[in-house]
């Protein structure tokens, strides 16, 4: 008991923190594009489940993980295009549309999976993505194990965080996304096609959620179950708010959720009598507190959850 807090313990905790934060980070990054454009996509849980299923099915039949990831991304984009259609074209309530998408996504993925594979004693499996040790860096003691001995998607997620920050802060496209989220009418009068930008932003969000869903079934695990996303889609929404729509802060938020679950898994495994539920609760509490401070400063995109119509004043 006394010597569990050794260097090995911390190294393995931090390494799994980085791995566990990956699906949350990926989904949150996509949702930042979506929310910045003024759309709240609450259907990420369903999108991720669909992509986890699609990624698994594609990888299983093609025996190729790359096709699995591609399948997951495409299905993620299709799901979010549906969300975009409901919230932009139909101008339906986004909270309810997201709820519908979550119910539908989980229902459809479990239905399709059962139709394809039926009931089997052993769940069908794929060879999941192996880890890739980055040469030289991975052999640095401690640091190497924590940061440089993961699979490629893990590295990609953190690279995409920096990339997304650049896209949103330094490019015209990023500026347009923020403009339609802040003041769609002004953006419209400047000649920005509000629906087009919003559709693009929501579908980009779907691509990220799709990669993240496929990560769950063919890189983090090697099989599919309709409960495997386990709330990560909703956690990603929390991370986005926590991060105040900044991709780099989303990295911090995802790591916070990651370390909470890493510690919880480890404590449970070694039977430490610390109530780990409080640990798991902590990120949600922090999110509420973050939300209070954010809302006061009114950092929400001004047109958040508001459909845009040219005809309305």
């Amino acid at each position: 008991m006394d010597n569990i807090f050794t260097a090995t313990f911390f190294v393995s905790i931090f390494a799994s923190t980085i791995r566990l934060a990956t699906p949350i980070l990926l989904t949150a990054l996509g949702e930042i594009y979506t929310q910045r454009s003024g759309i709240l996509n609450l259907g990420l849980e369903g999108t991720m489940t669909m992509s986890a299923m699609a990624g698994f099915v594609c990888a299983y039949f093609s025996k190729n993980l790359f096709i699995g990831f591609l399948g997951g991304i495409i299905v993620g984009m299709i799901c979010s295009a549906f969300m975009a259609f409901l919230s932009i074209t139909v101008r339906a309530n986004q909270v309810i549309a997201g709820t519908a998408l979550t119910i539908l996504g989980i229902g459809f993925s479990s239905f399709i999976y059962r139709i394809i594979f039926g009931i089997q004693k052993l769940p069908p499996q794929v060879e999941s993505l192996t880890k890739f040790d980055i040469p030289l860096l991975s052999s640095i003691p401690y640091i190497g194990t924590i940061f440089f001995q993961h699979n490629l998607i893990v590295y990609l997620a953190y690279i995409l965080a920096v990339f997304s920050w650049i896209v949103l802060e330094k490019t015209t496209f990023g500026l347009n996304v923020k403009a339609v989220g802040e003041h769609p009418r002004a953006a419209d009068s400047k000649g920005i096609n509000v629906s087009k930008v919003r559709y693009t932003a929501v579908i980009i969000g779907g691509a990220f959620a799709g990669l993240s869903g496929a990560f769950m079934s063919i890189a983090y695990m090697n099989s599919f179950s309709d409960t495997m996303i386990a709330g990560r889609g909703f956690i990603a929404v929390a991370v986005v708010v926590f991060a105040r729509w900044n991709p780099l802060r989303a990295m911090v938020g995802s790591l916070l959720f990651g370390i909470a679950s890493a510690l919880q898994i480890r404590f449970q495994a070694i039977g430490v009598p610390i109530p780990n539920q409080f640990l798991l609760m902590l990120p949600y509490l922090v999110t509420i507190i973050a939300l209070i401070t954010v809302s006061k400063k009114a950092e929400f995109p001004s047109a958040y959850t508001k459909p845009y119509s040219r005809m309305e004043r």
Binding site: G231, V237, A238, V241, Q277, M281, T287, L291, I292, S295
Partner: peptide, 26 residues
């Protein structure tokens, strides 16, 4: 605080679930 209720009710949902888990495990 003008805190978006969609997020807060969702977070409080998780907190309640973990509170229940804490109580029945503890």
């Amino acid at each position: 605080f003008n805190a978006n209720e969609v997020i807060t009710t969702l977070m409080l949902d998780y907190i309640a679930t973990y509170l229940l888990a804490y109580l029945v495990y503890g």
